[in-house]
């Protein structure tokens, strides 16, 4: 296709992506270098006959508003936002490193810093949910594959529900069930014999709940992809393997698994991207006190009454860097494949 024709065909898409994905990424970098203006203070002398004169500071609301109007970005702060207590917190981390007794204590101190707390949960969620989705998805796919044909359709229908449902809605549905007065919550109280047991109270239980939700929500994706893969396992190869006397395990090991490997890579890639931006469940489970993610941290900054654009932008930049690190192996591999094909 000639360059010119290609250009006209791709133009609408390209403009949309440039304006609303590439531009905001640049805008985020710019915003992260600024912080909100401080309030403009006026010093005035107040005199009264009994105590004499003293100096008083008052907020000049008009001047503050004008300043904010004139320079909506705020004042330049350089990399200050990145290093402050709410982000990378270099000073606090160094302090914790010096004063802590052992790694556990150091980790505990890090968890008091909001950025590291969010990062810890995001990474834990990503790297626990992703493998579980693959294992559970594969197990369900193998199970459904052996079902009589009659049951396959309805099973797939039901399995799609947790994945298709709006994440916020899905998490609310589970949240209501695990409420101390909901069916799962009260059953757990019965089972453990602890009438005060609440899944919302402790950080560990909240993390566990969110991870269970994540697996429930994403396992169908793994299941569907692996199930489709199982339908295309080459049956001639399997039959040949049987003729050659391969055991059941050997057939799985040397025929099925190599066939499924590219699918595992695909599911891993999509899951890493999607789990890294975990956000809605934290809103749905009202879990912010015990578990925040990077996305939630940005959302909280943005929706606060005093929206902290600078802080949200700095977290966004750090998140994007995180995504880049996560994707780097895939991109490098694709690039190598591409070059090998051309060579």
């Amino acid at each position: 296709m000639p360059h010119r024709t290609f250009f006209w065909f791709i133009l609408p898409s390209l403009v949309a992506m440039a304006l609303f994905i590439a531009f905001p990424l640049i805008s985020v970098v710019a915003q992260s270098l600024f912080v909100e203006h401080e309030q403009v203070l006026i010093e005035s002398e107040v005199c009264d006959p009994f105590t004499g004169c003293r100096k008083e500071l008052t907020v000049d609301a008009v001047a503050t508003a004008q300043l904010r109007e004139a320079q909506p970005l705020g004042r330049f702060n350089g990399l200050g936002t990145y290093t402050d207590r709410n982000h990378l917190a270099f000073a606090e981390v160094a302090e914790a490193w010096r004063t802590s007794e052992g790694l556990a204590d150091f980790g505990g101190q890090l968890m008091n810093l909001p950025f590291y707390k969010a990062l810890a949960f995001t990474l834990t969620y990503t790297f626990v949910v992703t493998p579980l989705v693959i294992v559970l998805g594969l197990a369900i796919a193998l199970g459904v594959n052996g079902l009589p044909k009659l049951f396959k359709g309805p099973t797939i229908f039901v399995s799609l529900l947790p994945m298709i449902v709006t994440p916020l809605i899905g998490s609310l549905i589970l949240f209501w069930m695990i409420d101390a007065r909901g069916i799962i919550g009260s059953s757990l109280q019965e089972l453990t014999g602890d009438p005060n047991l609440s899944l919302k109270a402790s950080p560990a239980l909240t993390w566990l709940t969110l991870i269970v939700y994540g697996v429930w929500h994403s396992a169908p994706f793994g299941f569907i992809v692996f199930y489709a893969g199982l339908q295309t396992v080459p049956s001639e190869t399997l039959e040949a393997a049987i003729v050659d006397g391969a055991s059941r395990w050997e057939r799985i090991r040397y025929v099925v698994i190599p066939h499924m490997a590219p699918l595992v890579v695909f599911v891993t890639l999509i899951q890493l991207m999607d789990n890294f931006r975990v956000f809605e469940p934290i809103v749905g489970f009202s879990a912010a006190a015990n578990a925040t993610s990077l996305s939630y941290f940005i959302y909280a900054d943005l929706t606060d009454i005093n929206a902290r654009f600078g802080s949200a932008a700095a977290t966004s930049v750090l998140t994007v860097i995180g995504v880049a690190i996560l994707l780097a192996p895939v991109l490098v591999r694709t690039w190598r494949d591409f070059n090998r094909k051309r060579a």
């Binding site: 390209l14 609303f20 994905i21 915003q31 991207m273 940005i298 900054d301 996560l326 591409f338």
Partner: peptide, 30 residues
């Protein structure tokens, strides 16, 4: 299109696909 830039556009699209939506929102809002 068989050209190299078509491949790169797809790669950029993949990177964009991975961006958490809220990071983009924080770029739009102001």
């Amino acid at each position: 299109s068989g050209y190299r830039y078509a491949f790169w556009l797809l790669m950029i699209a993949l990177v964009f696909r991975a961006m958490p939506h809220i990071t983009l929102v924080s770029g739009y809002l102001l």
